[in-house]
Design a protein around this nucleic acid. Structure first.
Length: 564
RNA sequence: GUGCUUGUAGUCGAGAGGAUAAGACGCCGGCCUCCGAAGCCGGAAAGCGCGGGUUCGAAUCCCGCCAAGCACGCCA
């Protein structure tokens, strides 16, 4: 049980006792007890604003409530109840300001905590499993018609980090990529590749109007020619479009998977839109019809989404009988709901925000709880080099491909930079900073701390210093040592918060802070050359520190090198 | 025009309604006979776009305004 939880239990128990004995008015409407780490050390190790929150409920001043609770918590029986291992938890409880209760934890509690973390070893950072909660996270889902660009990169980094973080927090998570392998853009791909095919084989052609102009289309075509030569020339046009379209699709999908793999992104499920055509789409439309959510007008079928919060109704089946993208998306989301996840998370580019209302409207009409569907938006990414915005790729003539970014700054820096900022802020990506292998670059700063600790371990081993059993941790009592122990102890809580807020940037910031706390420790505390018991205690602390840095970077998909 | 997101020191930005608003860059000043100076320590610099409101308490919540980005297709 975490110290934090013990404090919550103490407050609750004291409150119940006070209400039972009539010193506080009985109420059933008490707020959650929130525990925070105070901004200043003088305010103790933990604090709560519970007395201030309940002042109206009890009709007593906050300080009086705090006094009452303190007296009960400090009473012997309650202290005993809290200390499962027979030790007291609180050194003292101070009442400060308007009615904060500041808890000062007994010094040995911190060592006990460290001992538990040390005993957990490699498992530290894996929170207990939250049963019966399975979350699906769908992200990237870029069309297989071109290269992933940096915007997709942000989604890929954020999504994969969220998957990692939520798994660490104890949720079952399934990641999914929705492949838009049906519809107009696939026809365009076929037409574009067909044009390049004819062109590369010496025929003159008019490039299709909506065709994809990127150089990657030429590369794809060249790969097809390298394997099949000109044998498709003999086919009639419509037949050739079909064949080349399929070949190009397979090539593009492989290319996309390859980029994602290099970016350390994996998916559990690759869901093909084609599997929805036409039966599942028709079935979804039929169900909507039965619910009265579909009407006909101008030869098309419309979804009456404006009845459920959308600003207007939307076409689902065009007057030519073809389903719109929305129709497929309704069938897709229906399918997701039917798979029984506790929560569905979509990561979308901010340019799709107008789409939420219509999808949610359709889900409501189908009778699902639309609140289960959580849509997270990634604001736009702008690249900067030498202070100037970089708009286009010189090589590809399109938006900057993710692979070019990876080549230029490396996967570690690219991922870390994408994850440093909250997903709902626009991101200005400074290529020069990401590339610089200097103190200015936060990713190197963190990795450097990890490499330094690793170096200490190498040297400790040479010096014959080994960790056996549990060292005397209480030998570490300086401020920097206690700071580092506390910082490491905060890790599980950070994971919990990052998962609850879908906020990978919390982990990025935490691991930076941890590296910084370690650096201060490193300045003041030597390992080699001090008395053996102390050296071992510090080595144990460094072991959990190194593990935590490694683990946190792992959640972000950033490597933790032992040497740099 | 409507909707979504954002607005914090010179710059970039953190902030799950709470106690004197992180950190980084840049600026000023210190620290390598000692485990990696890709490092450490100290200093100057903002009261959180503007105006109201809710609250014991607001950068955080609500309303209005201003500014920026994005979106408003029988495209996906």
């Amino acid at each position: 049980m975490q110290t934090r939880d013990k404090i919550v239990a103490a407050i609750k128990a004291a409150t119940v006792a006070a209400m039972t004995e009539g010193t506080l008015k009985t109420s059933e409407d008490l707020p959650e007890v929130s525990i925070q780490v105070p901004p200043k050390k003088e305010f103790g190790d933990y604090a709560t604003n519970f007395a201030m929150q309940t002042t109206k409920i009890f009709h007593v001043s906050p300080r009086k409530i705090a006094e009452e609770l303190r007296a009960r918590i400090m009473a012997v029986d309650l202290a005993h109840f809290l200390a499962a291992d027979g030790e007291d938890l609180f050194e003292e409880i101070q009442i400060a300001g308007a009615g904060f209760m500041n808890f000062f934890i007994k010094p040995n509690v911190i060592y006990r905590q460290l001992k538990e973390i040390y005993a957990e070893g490699e498992d530290f950072g894996h929170l207990p499993c939250k049963n019966n909660v399975t979350i699906q996270i769908e992200y990237v889902s870029a069309n297989p018609t071109g290269l992933l660009h940096v915007g997709h990169g942000r989604g890929a980094a954020a999504g994969s980090a969220m998957v990692n973080i939520m798994r660490a927090a104890g949720y079952n998570v399934e990641s999914e990529y929705y492949i838009n392998d049906a519809g107009n853009q696939m026809d365009n791909l076929a037409k574009s590749v067909n044009a390049r095919y004819l062109e590369l084989l010496g025929q003159s052609v008019d490039f299709p109007e909506d065709g994809y102009l990127g150089e990657d289309i030429i590369d794809t075509t060249k790969r097809i020619i390298a394997r099949d030569g000109d044998k498709h020339l003999a086919l009639p046009e419509d037949e050739r479009l079909k064949v080349l379209g399929e070949l190009a699709y397979v090539d593009k999908l492989l290319e996309l998977k390859d980029d994602l793999k290099k970016f350390r992104v994996n998916f559990d499920v690759w869901f093909s839109e084609r599997t929805l055509h036409p039966d599942k789409i028709n079935a979804a439309i039929e169900t909507l019809k039965e619910k009265g959510g579909i009407y006909e007008q101008d030869g098309a079928l419309w979804l009456a989404s404006s009845k459920y919060g959308d600003d207007k109704d939307r076409v689902v089946i065009r007057d030519n009988g073809e389903p719109t993208y929305l129709a497929a998306d309704i069938a897709y989301h229906k399918n997701k709901f039917d798979r029984g996840f506790s929560e569905l998370i979509n990561l979308w580019g901010a340019d799709h925000h107008g789409y939420v209302a219509r999808v949610k409207a359709a889900m409501k009409m189908l009778g699902y709880d639309a609140d289960k569907l959580k849509i997270i938006f990634l604001q736009m990414v702008s690249l900067f080099r030498g202070g100037e915005a970089v708009k286009m790729s010189k090589r590809a003539g399109t938006a900057i491909p993710l692979r070019e970014l990876m080549e230029e700054v490396g996967t570690d820096a690219a991922r870390y930079f994408f994850l440093m900022r909250s997903t709902d802020s626009q991101l200005d990506f400074d290529l020069d900073l990401a590339k610089s292998q200097s103190a200015d670059n936060p990713v190197y700063y963190v990795q450097y701390a990890h490499a330094r600790i690793s170096s200490i371990f190498r040297q400790a081993e040479e010096a014959g210093l080994k960790l056996d059993g549990i060292p005397q941790l209480s030998l570490m009592n300086s401020a920097v040592e206690l700071d580092l122990i506390n910082k490491v102890s905060e890790y599980p809580d950070e994971i919990e918060k990052a998962a609850a807020e879908y906020a990978p940037q919390r982990i990025a910031r935490y691991v930076y802070d941890l590296a910084s706390t370690f650096s201060a420790f490193y300045r003041d505390c030597r390992i080699l050359g001090v008395e053996e018991d102390l050296a071992k205690a510090r080595l144990a602390l460094l072991k959990v520190t190194r593990h935590t840095i490694n683990h946190a970077l792992g959640l972000l998909g950033v490597s933790a090198p032992e040497r740099m």
